[in-house]
Amino acid sequence: MSELRTERLLLRGWRESDLAPWAAMNADPEVRAHFPGLLTREQSEASVARFQAALEARGWGWWAAEVRATGEFIGFTGLDPVEEAMPFTGVEAGWRLARPAWGHGYATEAAEAALAYGFTTLALPEILAVTTTTNLRSQAVMRRIGMTRNPADDFDDPGAPDGPLRRSVVYRIAAEEQRAKRHA
């Protein structure tokens, strides 16, 4: 299983010590504001088991994110195949951080590392990211990492309930765009 290192972060496999802070994140209404609801401790633990199994099987997926200087677990980032129910295919980049980690550039730093891995190691032609139309913070990260949105790709998430969380946006970046951005 691969680990990614950035200047400030370690993206790694999941540890038992990650469970409590992960569950706390998923019980935080602000962290989960753009998701259909809060997760129970059991649901959070089940998600970690799925994430770790995918990392072990593929070597990549949703990595736990840790601040290198302190060893503090702050959330996750990574890449995952798009779910079959979606109206598009490909590999998605994503992130979710605990509130104290917001506003420090960690999501951007981690997402850039995930993109680099996807394009260089996995040789993906394109990576996309999906969020609700209301999640402006994540959309800002998507733009910072060079992704662009075509409003024609916007869709109603089949897994979300009717309401403000159903309408979603898709941002994309092609491998050539990532190379050009790094060399600019």
Rank of each mutant, 00 (worst) to 15 (best):
Y106S: 11
S44D: 03
G13W: 11
L165Y: 09
A85P: 01
M86S: 05
A140V: 00
A20K: 14
V48N: 03
W63P: 00
P29M: 07
L165A: 06
Y106P: 10
T89C: 09
R179G: 02
W102I: 10
G94L: 05
L128S: 00
A107E: 01
T89M: 07
F76C: 13
G118R: 00
D156N: 05
E112D: 15
G159E: 15
G159W: 06
E16K: 15
T134F: 14
F51Q: 10
P158N: 03
H183T: 15
I173D: 00
R166K: 14
K181C: 11
T132H: 07
A101C: 08
P125V: 05
Y117G: 01
A113N: 02
R41C: 10
R137H: 06
A152S: 13
N26Q: 13
F76P: 02
G159Y: 05
P87N: 02
A152W: 04
F51E: 09
G90R: 01
N150E: 15
Y171M: 07
R32T: 14
E112R: 15
G90C: 04
W102P: 01
R12H: 06
R8N: 10
L4T: 03
V31W: 03
A93G: 10
V82T: 13
F88Q: 07
T70C: 07
A111Q: 11
T108M: 05
L9K: 05
A180H: 04
E7I: 14
R8Y: 07
R179V: 14
L11I: 06
L9R: 08
E84F: 10
E177D: 12
L38R: 09
Q43W: 04
A129E: 00
G159S: 13
T89H: 05
E83I: 12
N135C: 07
G71Q: 09
V141A: 00
V31Y: 07
L39F: 13
G163C: 07
H34Y: 15
T40R: 08
A57V: 09
S138V: 01
R99P: 05
R12C: 10
F88W: 10
G146P: 01
E112N: 14
E56V: 07
E126A: 10
E7M: 12
A54V: 05
S47K: 14
T89V: 09
A113Q: 04
W60P: 05
I173M: 12
R12E: 03
G75M: 06
A152K: 05
F88C: 03
A27V: 09
S17K: 12
F119W: 02
T133D: 12
